[in-house]
Simulated scan of single mutants.
Amino acid sequence: MRILTLPLLLLSAATAAAQLPSAKPIPRGQAVPLPHHITSFQLDGREITAMHFDPQDMRPFWHPMRASRDVSLTRMGHPHDPLTHSHHNSVWVTHNTVNGIDFWGDYAKKQGRIVNVEVSREGYEDTDEFASMRMVNHWLNEEDKAVQLIEVRRTEVRPLDGAKSWLMIIDLEFTPPKGQTTTFGATGFGLVAARMAKSIGVHDGGGRILNSEGQVNEKDVFRKPARWCDYSGRITNDADGFGGITLMNHPMNPHNPTAFHVRDDGWMGCCLSLDTPVEVTEEKKLRVRYALWTHDGVTTQEQSEAQWKAFTAMPVVNLNPPKPVKK
């Protein structure tokens, strides 16, 4: 039997462009919605992090956190206690005591859950400079589903040197339900935290903690005030297989410079209210801003300080821009 075949028509780039003169360039940075409540943040088509916001989870979180290599600088859960530390969700936002309710752990007597209720209609931005996502979350009492806080969150991923060096900027605004006051209690647990990869931890991998004051590792860094804290270590066995994350506090946040709760076992957190509670009312909303600088290599104090200065010099975004007027 004779099979007839048609010649393949391979169009040159110039011919294809001529056929579609209206085709726009693809932005380098994209926030791509995926199934199962995931948004993938991509640079040139490669995922460097992703927002997970399944309502069945206890809280939204970002995972993985990749630099130039296809290995995450963070992990899910404590390497030696995955059950009772199941709340260590890579990079996450939460707090140990909000109106006496525990949003930090997963098995509290008074348990809280952070549930996504909206991804804004204009919530995604894709550009060559950054990709972003805006969402609204409710902080709920698990027992009666009563709302304790309304949170607006914007995630912006901004490459600085490709995937070798990039910022994830986290903007948050908290408002209580109408007519109520919500209190973030005094605790070292919350508001932004990262569970580093096992190989980066000081205890397991021989990594290094460094803060803005030049202090090194848990003994000197634990709960000390600082502008930023970096956790760096080995991620592959290549000669240059190192990377890390610098967690940055913004001067607009309460109690700046804030305490950093950091352990040699591989986790670090930026404290909102270590010794002093923070009250939130309708008239006095809580507006905070953080960043995580994900980088190849082991950073120096000067390098992390320079990134912190650049971050704090950026304009603060408006989380509630006016809606466009319909014509």
Rank of each mutant, 00 (worst) to 15 (best):
R234F: 09
S120K: 15
L172E: 02
T246D: 01
G179V: 02
S86W: 04
P257H: 08
R69V: 12
F130Q: 06
H95G: 04
N211Y: 04
A163K: 12
A146M: 10
E143T: 13
V98H: 01
T155V: 15
W166N: 02
H80T: 15
T246V: 14
F184K: 07
E125G: 10
D54Y: 08
P254I: 03
H250N: 07
P176Q: 00
S304I: 08
V119N: 11
A226E: 00
N217E: 02
R59S: 09
C271K: 02
V117F: 01
G244N: 03
G205C: 01
P322D: 08
T127Q: 06
A146H: 01
R121K: 15
G241Y: 02
F189C: 09
F41R: 06
P55H: 04
K24A: 15
P225T: 11
L11S: 12
F222Y: 13
A17F: 10
S72C: 04
E173W: 06
H295C: 07
T299W: 02
A259R: 09
S212P: 06
M314S: 12
Y290C: 05
H36K: 13
D57F: 10
G123A: 08
M268H: 04
L34G: 09
E143G: 07
D128M: 03
V71Y: 03
P27M: 01
A13V: 14
P277D: 08
D265G: 01
W62H: 07
S165H: 13
D44F: 09
S12W: 10
E142P: 11
V317I: 14
G269H: 04
E125I: 14
G179P: 03
T187K: 02
R59I: 07
G188Q: 09
W267G: 00
V157P: 05
Q111F: 08
N320A: 15
D126M: 11
G105T: 12
N141D: 15
M196P: 02
M168I: 12
N89F: 07
P322Q: 05
L160F: 07
P82L: 06
H95P: 05
T39P: 05
C270N: 12
V221C: 11
R263I: 08
T258V: 11
T15M: 14
N141V: 08
D54H: 13
D54S: 11
M1A: 14
L73T: 01
D161E: 14
K219I: 11
V192T: 03
R195L: 07
V147P: 01
W308E: 00
D171N: 12
P315A: 03
A313V: 08
A18G: 12
N89W: 04
V119E: 11
L319P: 02
D275V: 11
Q180P: 05
P324I: 09
I26C: 11
N249L: 07
S72L: 00
P79G: 02
A291P: 05
R158T: 11
W308F: 10
K110T: 12
